[in-house]
Design a protein around this nucleic acid. Sequence first.
DNA 1: TGTTGACTTGGAGTTAACTCCAAGGTGTAT
DNA 2: ATACACCTTGGAGTTAACTCCAAGTCAACA
Lengths: 124, 124
Amino acid sequence: MTIKEVCEKYDITPDTLRYYERVGVIPEVGRTAGGNRNYTDEDISWVENAICMRSAGVPVEMLIEYVKLYREGDSTIEARKNLLIEARVGIQEKLNQYQETMDKLNYKISRYEEAMKTGVLTWE
Amino acid sequence: MTIKEVCEKYDITPDTLRYYERVGVIPEVGRTAGGNRNYTDEDISWVENAICMRSAGVPVEMLIEYVKLYREGDSTIEARKNLLIEARVGIQEKLNQYQETMDKLNYKISRYEEAMKTGVLTWE
DNA sequence: TGTTGACTTGGAGTTAACTCCAAGGTGTAT
DNA sequence: ATACACCTTGGAGTTAACTCCAAGTCAACA
């Protein structure tokens, strides 16, 4: 699969994909005889994973660390698991915070709707 | 309330608080005779709101717009409500995305746990 | 009255995560 | 064989949201 095809599949730019590879968010991708990137199914699953984790705010730094451990082999399984657990803690905290803000926002919006219906402003 | 007290109350730095005021994330805060910031209860509720919204990723730009509309008075009530709804859409999308990533992460971690118990690696 | 510590301002610097660019190579349809 | 779109690299530039700094003011205490 060419870089363009991967980009279209995941709605991402070639620059981002090259950046991910350069810094190590995904392992190195093989090249064609001409030197162009040629993504295998395995490469693509790394890309998919990176996009998923990034979309939940997992830092690039953490993904780099994971790939680094992965390349070191089976001895790093526990370290990798711990990294995933660390990522999970961060995501859970964000989920809680976002939900809390969501609740406040819903309350605020309901007050605006009330004010607009009655024409009476009773706050701030 | 002094800037220091507000900072301690919300675990935030004075620089951030001054930055919020400078760019308009919160309305201007009154000063003492000596020129120091003196936060009223109303100022504090603006600060609290800003921190809450920012912690859910609502862009600074949007908070500035909200404060700007607020200062224009009652004629902007509908616009303000629409801004809040826009913020809510963004937060809901993040919540969905984070939950999806959480599910994938839980699955991944469970596979690691399985691998560590059985000593058998069956993937990647 | 002098020193200490917290405050003020405008402006510059930092960080993460891209995003863009120049100079050049590749590949395929005419 | 020659456009033309697409690819490569290293490196520079951008953006959002802070974060830090210098130079100066102010308040309280020895």
